[in-house]
Amino acid sequence: MWTLQNAKNKFSTVVDAALAGMPQEVTRRGKPAVVILSASEYHQLLSEARQSRGSFVEHLLTFPANDIERSQVKPRTVDF
Rank of each mutant, 00 (worst) to 15 (best):
F56V: 09
E41S: 04
A65M: 14
R53L: 07
A7I: 13
A18N: 03
E25A: 06
R50D: 06
V73Y: 13
E41N: 06
A20H: 04
P75Q: 10
A17L: 14
V57K: 07
A20Y: 01
A18W: 00
R29K: 15
N66L: 15
T3C: 03
G54I: 02
L45K: 14
E25V: 04
H59M: 15
K31Q: 12
P23S: 07
S12M: 14
A18G: 02
E41R: 06
R76Q: 13
E58K: 01
K31C: 05
P75T: 08
S71H: 11
E25T: 03
W2E: 15
R70A: 11
I36H: 00
G21Q: 12
T13K: 06
G21I: 12
Q51G: 04
K8L: 15
V15H: 09
S55D: 01
A7L: 11
D67G: 09
P64K: 15
T27F: 03
E58H: 02
T3Q: 04
A18M: 03
L46E: 11
A33Y: 13
L19Q: 13
W2G: 09
V57D: 05
S12Y: 10
A20K: 08
A65E: 13
T62H: 10
A65H: 07
N66F: 14
K74I: 13
M1A: 12
T3M: 01
P64V: 10
E41T: 09
T3V: 07
E41D: 08
N6F: 01
Q44K: 10
T77L: 07
Q51Y: 01
A65N: 05
P32V: 02
K10P: 00
R53V: 01
V73T: 13
A65P: 00
S47H: 03
F80E: 12
